[in-house]
Design a protein around this nucleic acid. Structure first.
Lengths: 143, 143
DNA sequence: TTGCTAGATGAGAATGATTCCCATTTGCAA
DNA sequence: TTGCAAATGGGAATCATTCTCATCTAGCAA
């Protein structure tokens, strides 16, 4: 249970940082994202947070406020919906197999050099703070 | 009018390539995307293709089939909706100003090196065929 | 050119995700 | 502990998207 408590403490701290009250609904949403190995659609979150913990309208409100505050971010994996994931790490990206849907994460995308290049080409921009990279291809099995 | 005709011919060719019939509704959607300088939400497309040319259900059907066939792709610019754009060029990305929403395109993202790196880290993937890169930062005015 | 037919669209109803409203509850600072 | 602004519950309302099916048409074959 040590792990769970550590995660709970981190969640509480995070909410405090963002000036959000520490409610069971918010903690449940954070815990779900911490325990999930893949980004989730709003519907999946609604389905997976148990009814007693948070009503659906509350979950939509939480997803919106978390996204606005940078706790969550949206990801486009080219499914027919947007997914949400924790926005803790900036250098966190995905590879999707367009054959079977298999999903893997990767880091180390060398974003600085891309950002530098982009800024050189777009002089009307001053700084790059975040970046999203998604790769689409075929896994060993589907290739 | 030379330009317009050339664009029309390209559109007809594209539809034929994809085994889609050449209808006024599809041509109107293609023309809209060719003339637009920014990715558009489904609602914007519905609003901008005139009623006489295509009914909304038709536009949704067209957006879906075009996306499935790779004529359009979805882009996540972190607005509260997904945007569509022509998928003609693979190396075509965006920078978004998180202050004012200003949008610019850039090319030359050095995708091969990212793909190579990612494949090295993810041995369960064999090939990368497409990639999405979006950058978020501040424009000169907002910085 | 005409006729044929699978494919495409029109029109509006149906669906279903998301948001709204407001009464009630609750986290948390003083 | 108290007070109150913030958050939630519950269900109705909204609105984007999809469905159904009758009608139309693009494009091929004769």
């Amino acid at each position: 249970m040590k792990k769970k408590n550590a995660s709970l403490d981190r969640s509480k701290l995070l909410l405090k940082e963002k000036n959000l009250r520490c409610t069971p609904a918010r903690l449940a949403v954070l815990a779900l994202f911490e325990s999930s190995d893949h980004p989730m659609s709003s519907q999946e979150v609604v389905a997976r947070v148990s009814r007693g913990t948070a009503y659906q309208a509350t979950i939509y409100r939480i997803l919106k406020s978390f996204t606005d505050l940078g706790i969550l971010r949206t990801v486009n994996l080219r499914h027919e919906h947007v997914d949400y994931e924790l926005a803790l790490h900036s250098d966190h990206h995905h590879i999707v197999c367009t054959g079977c849907g298999k999903l893997e994460k990767f880091e180390g995308c060398d974003a600085e050099s891309i950002a530098k290049k982009a800024l050189k080409k777009c002089p009307s921009f001053k700084t790059i703070n975040e970046h999203a990279i998604e790769l689409f291809g075929l896994c060993v099995r589907c290739a």
